[in-house]
């Protein structure tokens, strides 16, 4: 692929050269650029939607269960109570007591009782249960990151997506998540997925239909305070 790499290098200098010629700039003070970029964001509260009268948890539940997002929510005291909540959901939906979950120790260690668990994920998996890293109150979104025990596809292949999330992990805004990541100063994960409700499409006559390619049903179990 050497010729292609040469082509790419040529294109790179042509593109950057054209931009610089148009900008007519010689030296660049990187601190000035960074300062300008930061000042543009200024006070994020000026453009964030306000919901001062609501707790993060209340806003999250309101958004997640809205007509638009179509999720259902259950609340339990602790993670140990999550299997019982999952069992309730399976019964409500008249589904067999069988789930797939990612190979996370915290899920393996739970007492799943009558629910049969497996850690493989088929392309038409009926029900998958996983844990979200965080939730975002503003939009009712859940945040997942890829790790060796947290594959991405658990959020996309199943028909029913059951998500466990820590009640203490509900952030107010997306910016709060990014500020936290920036402060941790670690390399970003391969995949960071903000998921808001079930897979939908408005491609035929703008009608909102659920279960386009990903999950058709989303059930959220909030554990802890």
């Amino acid at each position: 692929m050497s010729s292609q790499t040469d082509g790419s290098t040529g294109a790179r200098s042509a593109i950057l050269g054209a931009l610089r010629k148009s900008l007519g700039r010689t030296a660049l003070d990187l601190d000035v650029v960074a300062g300008e970029a930061q000042s543009l964001l200024g006070d994020a509260t000026r453009h964030q939607p306000k919901f001062d009268d609501q707790t993060s948890r209340a806003r999250f539940i309101e958004r997640a269960t809205s007509e638009r997002l179509t999720a259902t929510v259950d609340e339990v005291a602790a993670l140990a109570d999550a299997p019982a909540a999952v069992q309730r959901y399976l019964q409500q939906c008249d589904l067999p007591a069988q789930i797939s979950h990612p190979p996370m120790d915290c899920l393996r260690e739970l007492d799943w009782g009558a629910i049969a668990c497996h850690e493989t994920l088929s392309p038409d998996e009926p029900v998958a249960v996983n844990i979200a890293d965080w939730a975002i109150a503003e939009t009712g979104s859940l945040v997942f990151t890829s790790r060796s025990d947290s594959p991405t596809l658990y959020s996309y292949l199943p028909l029913h997506h059951v998500i466990l999330v820590d009640g203490g992990g509900i952030l107010r805004y997306m910016e709060d998540y990014w500020a936290m990541i920036r402060a941790a100063d670690t390399a970003p994960p391969r995949s960071t997925n903000f998921i808001t409700g079930t897979s939908g499409t408005a491609d035929i006559e703008a009608q909102n239909i659920r279960g386009a390619h990903g999950p058709r049903f989303m059930h959220i179990v909030i554990f802890g305070e």
């Binding site: 939009t139 979104s141 390399a187 970003p188 994960p189 391969r190 995949s191 960071t192 997925n193 903000f194 998921i195 808001t196 409700g197 079930t198 897979s199 939908g200 990903g214």
Partner: peptide, 9 residues
């Protein structure tokens, strides 16, 4: 917001 906002690295 749309349902799926994903950042790849």
């Amino acid at each position: 917001i749309s349902q799926y906002t994903t950042y790849y690295n």
